[in-house]
């Protein structure tokens, strides 16, 4: 296992270097996807199966498809914006300085880290019984630091709004379905297992690695597959229901937090008897919003529509 870790670390460095030095965009993307695979394995070795799952679903999977899709949409020329002289040099200088600063900060952080970093973790584990879920990571995400998770949901929605603002009209569902018969059949064959696994991961978050983010990403993958096989396309108009579903996670999370203030006396605190059903409700509504925003980030449109052949 030591050898395995050594090889893994070596390959990680190699691929990370490759990502920034690759000769073309596609080569960098390919290196990045393989880096995602290795990162997932590293999380496994670091005993963080939750992160391994997240990396598998988001890092290597969804992000890889997103990057490849973006690469496809780029025009044949004009990808490499060569900046005029002073800016070009400055870009490299800024990157070098940034890298150096990051390295120094990391070194300092490693140096400063106290030998007992587990205090918060132990407190969380001790309180696990009150959290309403058996899985410590989910308990921390949805209960102990619920406020952070709510803001993360907000960040994702922000990212989506940002992407919609800068989107190009080209991506407005203008791409047609691939002509091969196999890919729609793949979609039909794969859709039930993907949906099932996505929902299962959301549900499993309560007692084993999984949860809203991992499950949501897998559900988004189902949508991306429908979009890639032409069964679903981006539309420039969005319905009220879609906006509602996008906001659902944040709305349910906040409403539960606010409505229960008279009972518990604190924002985002949950009463004992209700805590488990609340966790599940919040988890599923978050997953729906996460899945939809990731899918819309992929199509780059504010709405979705069914394609008719």
């Amino acid at each position: 296992m030591m050898l395995l870790d050594g090889v893994l670390a070596l390959l990680l460095l190699l691929l990370a270097g490759r990502c920034v030095t690759a000769a073309s965009l596609l080569q960098a993307i390919v290196a990045f996807i393989v880096l995602g695979l290795l990162l997932a394995l590293s999380w496994v070795r670091l005993q963080a199966p939750d992160l391994a799952l997240a990396e598998a679903a988001i890092g290597a999977g969804l992000l890889g498809v997103l990057l490849l899709g973006t690469w496809r949409h780029l025009p044949a020329s004009g990808i490499h914006h060569e900046f005029p002289w002073p800016w070009h040099g400055m870009k490299q200088a800024v990157s070098a300085l940034g890298g150096l600063a990051l390295a120094v900060m990391l070194a300092l952080a490693l140096h400063e880290t106290a030998p007992e970093p587990a205090a918060a973790g132990e407190t969380a584990l001790a309180q696990l019984d009150a959290a309403g879920v058996k899985q410590p990571v989910t308990a921390v995400l949805l209960n102990f630091r619920a406020y952070d998770t709510l803001l993360e949901m907000g960040v994702l929605l922000m990212a989506l709004i940002g992407a919609l603002i800068v989107r190009r009209p080209l991506q407005d569902g203008s791409r047609i379905a691939p002509a091969t018969l196999l890919s729609p059949s793949l979609a039909r064959l794969f859709l039930p297992p993907i949906l099932l696994i996505g929902l299962y991961l959301v549900w499993a978050g309560a007692y084993s690695p999984g949860g809203a983010f991992q499950g949501g990403a897998v559900l988004a993958g189902a949508g991306v597959m429908l979009a890639l096989t032409g069964l679903l396309r981006g539309a420039s108009v969005d319905g009220l229901w879609l906006r509602g579903l996008l906001a659902l996670g944040a709305i349910v999370f906040t409403t539960a937090g606010v409505l229960l203030v008279p009972v518990t006396g604190h924002f985002m605190a949950y009463p004992d008897g209700l805590v488990t059903p609340l966790m599940v409700l919040i988890e599923f509504s978050l997953a729906i919003s996460i899945a939809l925003s990731l899918l819309l980030l992929f199509t780059g449109t504010p709405g979705l529509a069914r394609s008719r052949p």
Partner: peptide, 30 residues
């Protein structure tokens, strides 16, 4: 490592492997 949850991670990778190929050829076919 006796972590059955890793099988879920394997499942997720399998599902996304097909998506990557789909994403790569998307929009290029005759």
């Amino acid at each position: 490592l006796e972590q059955p949850a890793l099988i879920h991670a394997a499942l997720v990778f399998v599902l996304f492997a097909a998506l990557l190929a789909l994403g790569f050829v998307y929009g290029t076919e005759r």
